[in-house]
């Protein structure tokens, strides 16, 4: 069971890496193409900007959730730096993860409401008339994944708290990360 979970987690992160790579490459290429079209071919594609927007928003939200998995979101680690006892550090981390998880759950719920609202009032992009929902879905996917990784983090700190072998505290879910 545990092994299967590891495999699933690894597959999820690998998928996120591919999404990030593809979105990021599409955005860079799209912007570069815009310059080439303007100066080399003397033209523009009406609506190129709204096309670039799609991978952009996906990159933002999948990137944010990937950073949750890696534990690289910015925080003020004052207490982690200045607290002496390892146990106190783990306690603080448990509190932090609990608060983060609570906020994450509320935001995931709000994201559901948001998507429902968007489905009720379907909007489209101005030039190509693409449904906006294909971009907005990134918001809910991002929040659910961020919340999920926060829950994993909380699970780990609690396990840590119970066993209290603080010497080998894993830093984050990043341990699942595939190489390369």
């Amino acid at each position: 069971m545990k092994k299967q979970l590891h495999v699933a987690a690894r597959a999820l992160l690998a998928a996120q890496r591919w999404i990030l790579f593809i979105c990021c490459a599409l955005v860079v290429i799209g912007l570069f193409a815009q310059v080439i079209l303007r100066y080399v071919l003397g033209t523009t594609i009406l609506g190129l900007n709204e096309l670039i927007l799609i991978p952009t928003i996906w990159m933002y939200f999948i990137g944010a959730s990937y950073a949750s998995a890696e534990g690289t979101h910015i925080s003020a680690d004052i207490l982690q730096v200045y607290l002496r006892s390892n146990r106190a550090k783990v306690v603080v981390r448990t509190i932090v993860s609990t608060i983060s998880l609570a906020v994450g759950l509320i935001l995931s719920w709000w994201a559901c409401l948001y998507i429902q609202h968007s489905l009720d009032r379907p909007g489209t992009t101005p030039v190509f008339g693409l449904p906006l929902i294909i971009v907005q879905v990134a918001v809910i996917v991002g929040f659910i994944l961020m919340t999920f990784y926060t829950a994993v983090e909380l699970y780990r700190t609690i396990a840590q708290l119970k066993s209290d072998k603080s010497a080998t505290l894993p830093n984050s879910v990043a341990n699942y990360k595939t190489e390369g």
Binding site: R17, L20, F21, C23, C24, A25, M59, Y60, F61, I62, G63, A64, S65, Y66, A67, E70, T72, H73, I74, G142, M146, G180
Partner: peptide, 21 residues
């Protein structure tokens, strides 16, 4: 060449951190 994907992924993850903030 094989580092390119990593560079893009790292860049996108850093981007995600800033943008979600």
């Amino acid at each position: 060449v094989r580092e390119l994907k990593d560079v893009f992924v790292e860049g996108a993850a850093t981007t995600g951190v800033v943008m979600i903030m």
